[in-house]
Computed example of a mutant assay.
Amino acid sequence: MRTGLAPRIALGAVGVLVAAYGAWLLLSRQDAEQLRSAAVWLVAGVVLHDVVLAPVVVVLGLLVSRVVPPVARAPIAAGAIVLGSVTLLAVPVLGRFGERSDNPSLLDRDYTAGWLVLAAVVLVAVVVATLARARRRRQPPS
């Protein structure tokens, strides 16, 4: 099924408008030091992704594809995407960056325990999906 050009242009226009609004909010509500910090954070994110994360993911993918049976590759890839994405987003709370002794309501729980629970849930989901795929492959077509 092909999508016409008009919906794509409309979707692109909405994306540009939302990005422009976000840029306006950023520039109009922050002082120079905060803007500098945001720029450093954004550049560091790109550099870390391209120099560290992407090569590590490629190497791990190659290793996993050689060691893991084909039936388990898709569930492991899905689990790695979920856990990897959530872990990257959780780095600030897992590292307790921004914790302040004068405000105990900031970072008020054990985020590491929550991440471990998520990791266990993802692991169980990967195992269940792998077993279901293996079982489906063993059954003769009806």
Score class of each variant (00 low, 15 high):
3 T>A: 12
3 T>L: 14
4 G>R: 02
6 A>Q: 00
10 A>F: 10
12 G>L: 15
12 G>D: 10
13 A>L: 15
14 V>P: 00
14 V>A: 15
15 G>I: 02
15 G>R: 07
18 V>A: 15
18 V>H: 00
20 A>R: 13
21 Y>M: 07
23 A>I: 12
24 W>P: 00
25 L>A: 11
25 L>E: 11
27 L>Y: 13
30 Q>A: 13
31 D>Y: 10
33 E>K: 07
34 Q>P: 07
34 Q>L: 09
35 L>H: 07
36 R>V: 14
38 A>N: 12
38 A>M: 09
39 A>V: 15
40 V>R: 10
40 V>P: 00
41 W>R: 13
46 V>S: 09
46 V>T: 10
47 V>T: 13
48 L>S: 13
48 L>Y: 08
48 L>V: 12
52 V>E: 01
52 V>G: 12
53 L>T: 15
54 A>T: 06
55 P>E: 11
58 V>T: 07
59 V>M: 11
60 L>E: 07
60 L>W: 06
60 L>N: 08
61 G>M: 10
63 L>Y: 11
65 S>W: 13
66 R>F: 03
67 V>D: 06
67 V>E: 06
68 V>I: 15
69 P>N: 14
71 V>M: 08
71 V>Y: 04
74 A>V: 15
74 A>W: 15
75 P>I: 05
76 I>D: 01
77 A>F: 09
78 A>N: 12
81 I>L: 14
83 L>T: 00
84 G>P: 03
84 G>D: 06
86 V>C: 05
87 T>Y: 14
87 T>M: 08
88 L>A: 09
88 L>G: 13
89 L>G: 14
90 A>Y: 04
92 P>L: 08
94 L>I: 03
94 L>E: 05
96 R>T: 04
96 R>N: 05
96 R>S: 08
97 F>Y: 10
98 G>M: 00
99 E>H: 12
99 E>V: 04
99 E>T: 09
99 E>L: 12
100 R>M: 12
100 R>Q: 13
100 R>H: 10
101 S>C: 08
101 S>Y: 07
103 N>A: 15
104 P>I: 14
106 L>F: 07
109 R>N: 11
109 R>S: 14
110 D>A: 08
110 D>N: 15
111 Y>N: 07
112 T>Q: 04
113 A>N: 08
121 V>D: 10
121 V>H: 03
124 V>F: 10
125 A>V: 01
125 A>P: 04
125 A>N: 01
125 A>W: 04
127 V>R: 00
128 V>E: 10
128 V>N: 03
130 T>R: 08
133 R>H: 04
135 R>N: 02
135 R>E: 09
136 R>C: 05
138 R>H: 11
138 R>N: 04
139 Q>T: 09
139 Q>P: 01
139 Q>K: 09
140 P>A: 14
141 P>Q: 09
